[in-house]
C-alpha cells in the first residue's frame, strides 16, 4: 500500500508570535519551527497502517516548504517514514491554500497513492482548507478531523470517527481517500537513535516548480491581507477578595449577575 503523509513546517505552539516591524507578517526571528502538530498524528497513523498492511507498503512524506524544512522531513524519516518529496522553490513564499493544493496535487499524482493522511489544520494560517481542496482536485473522498481510524482487512475502505459538535460522526470511506487528523487519534512515536541514523540515508527528492511542470506560481492571487492585528489587550483583572472566602464568592456571584450580566 502506498501511503502519503503531508507535512507542513510551522512555528512551535510555545512560540510567542509577534507582528514584524513593517506590519506585513510575523517576526520569525528566534521562532522555533516544528512539524505541524496535527501532521504528526498523520505520520504516526501512516506508520501504523504500513505496519498493519505489511508487504511492500511504503510511507512517503510530502512537504512543501523552505530549505529549512529538510530538518523536519528528517525527523519524520527518523520516526520511520521511508522517503520524502520536498517541494522547495524560492518563488513560493507563503502560498495560499489554492496554490498549495494545486502544487501538492501535482506532486501527489506523480507519486501515486492509496491513502493520504494530513493534519486537520495548519497552526500558522489556521485555514483547514488544503486537504479538502486537494481531495476535490484529486477526485477522492475526504474525511476531516479524524479521531479514530480503522482500516478494513482487505484494505479497500476505512471506518473512522470524525469529531463534530458534541460527539463523533462515524464515517465509512472507500479508498483512495484523504484523512485529516485530530489530536487523540494516536500517540506519535519519538524518533529512536537507530531511526535517526537510518534517516540520514533515506531519500528526499527535492522538486522545484519547474520540476513539477509549473512555469510560474499557479493558482492566481485570490486575496490580500490588509492588516495584521495584535490581540486586544484584556481588561484588568478585578481580584475579588474578602476576609471570609464566603463573602468573596458571594461578591463574585453578584458581579457576574449584576455588573457583567452573564448569569
Amino acid at each position: 500500500m502506498k501511503i502519503l503523509v503531508l507535512l507542513k513546517r510551522v512555528p512551535d505552539t510555545e512560540a510567542r508570535i509577534l507582528i514584524n516591524q513593517e506590519g506585513t507578517g510575523i517576526n520569525e526571528q528566534g521562532v522555533k519551527f516544528v512539524i505541524n502538530t496535527y501532521d504528526e498524528y498523520g505520520i504516526e497513523q501512516g506508520l501504523r497502517i504500513r505496519e498493519q498492511v505489511g508487504g511492500d507498503s511504503k510511507v512517503t512524506v510530502v512537504c512543501m516548504g523552505p530549505g529549512e524544512a529538510t530538518e523536519l522531513i528528517r525527523t519524520a524519516l527518523a520516526m520511520g517514514a521511508d522517503d520524502a518529496v520536498h517541494i522547495c522553490d524560492p518563488a513560493l513564499g507563503k502560498p495560499d491554500p489554492f496554490t498549495s493544493a494545486i502544487i501538492l496535487a501535482k506532486a501527489i499524482t506523480d507519486e501515486g497513492f492509496d491513502i493520504i493522511f494530513c493534519g486537520k489544520q495548519a497552526i500558522d494560517d489556521d485555514m483547514a482548507q488544503v486537504q479538502s481542496i486537494l481531495a476535490e482536485m484529486l477526485d477522492i473522498p475526504q474525511v476531516n478531523v479524524v479521531a479514530v481510524f480503522e482500516l478494513s482487512d482487505d484494505g479497500t475502505k476505512a471506518t473512522v470517527r470524525r469529531r463534530i459538535e458534541g460527539g463523533d460522526e462515524k464515517v465509512e470511506a472507500r479508498l483512495p481517500a484523504i484523512f485529516s487528523c485530530e489530536k487523540g487519534l494516536n500517540e506519535p512515536r519519538y524518533a529512536s537513535l537507530p531511526g535517526i541514523m537510518k534517516a540520514k540515508k533515506k531519500e528526499i527528492r527535492t522538486k522545484t516548480l519547474a520540476d513539477l511542470g509549473f512555469g510560474e506560481v499557479p493558482g492566481g492571487t485570490r486575496s490580500r491581507v490588509l492588516k495584521w492585528l495584535p490581540l486586544p489587550k484584556g481588561a484588568e483583572c478585578r481580584m475579588v477578595e474578602a476576609e471570609e472566602m464566603k463573602d468573596a464568592v458571594a461578591e463574585l456571584a453578584r458581579l457576574l449577575r449584576e455588573e457583567a450580566k452573564v448569569i
Partner: peptide
C-alpha cells in the same frame, strides 16, 4: 467584504479581503 480572522492559532488576527472576481 473585509473579514477578520485569527491566525497562528489565535495569537494574532488578520484582516483579509478577496482580490479579483472570485
Amino acid at each position: 467584504c473585509v473579514v477578520k480572522r485569527p491566525v497562528y492559532s489565535g495569537k494574532l488576527f488578520i484582516e483579509i479581503a478577496p482580490e479579483g472576481e472570485w
